[in-house]
Amino acid sequence: MFELIILIGALVFSLLIVIKSANLFVDHLVEIGGVLGISQIILGVTASAIGTSLPEFGSALIASLSGSTEIGVGTVIGSNIWNIAGILGISATVAGVIGTNKEGLTRNWLMTLSTGLILIFFMMFGYINWIAALIMIAAYCVYLWLLIKAQRKYSKDNTKTDKNLENSLKQKKGAINKKTVGLTVLGLLGLIVGCRLLVYSGVELARLAGIPEMIMGLFTLAIGTSIPELVVTLSSAMKGLHDLSIGTVLGSNTFNILIGIGIPALLLGFPVERLSLTFDAPVMIIVTVLLMVLIKTGNMKLNRVGGLILLITYLVYAIFRIFILA
């Protein structure tokens, strides 16, 4: 019992370290990028696309490096299902409605759906090797380039914003502050240590409670590492910043698959568990399609009823996966 309490405490503590360290790392890395003269557009797009997803990526990578690949895959696929069905479900239910921008939604949704299908395709071989990993990482670079291109177009349309960006870029050029470098390194170290502790406590909790590691990854770690997505998506939906709300979730799902699985697979290769291929990954595709169906039927908005449908879908999936299939 005492060991269980300590492990749950360690899990919560490590989650806090991971999330805060990811923020610290990304924020200061962006500052360094600014000083080095990298465009604010590129930095802004990259920071928002990667910022909230670093905890999933870190956990998947550390889990794979320490031999717990099931937890790694589980965290990534579980996060993607939770991001759409859980987080967008909660956000639409609380905020009442999440509006969409047709162009951005179509681009991000198609990318999320195709990355899910690409993952299933590679999973069919029973093992995700370095060639598949390289294709996935290259696909993410293309996606990032598309995002930057879209942001550049948006900025060109708003010439005033462009001038502001140029000014801020000029102001930021100069020597790199030692404190900034120190905080970036501290963020990275915190991320590594936090992820290691997170995976360790997850694996030990699974062993102690007699739960499969995959279930631990699919639910506990997946939901825990998605806390940044939850706070960003919910608060932006409540403030009426709908593009940011949907964009955070879809962008994170794309990153989770292409980089969260791509990089660990490049380093070590990823063995595929049968249930992941036959159940979890198809559910991930189904909720992605369901999201678009709900948005289309809601007149390009995800309304409260749609949010509740997503939440119920997640509950049904969790009950099936934990109590019947596990």
Binding site: N23, V26, A47, S48, T52, P228, V231, S235
Partner: peptide, 12 residues
């Protein structure tokens, strides 16, 4: 909310 990344807060 607590744990919102600084850059995203600025963006919002």
């Amino acid at each position: 909310p607590f744990l919102t990344p600084k850059k995203i807060k600025e963006m919002m």
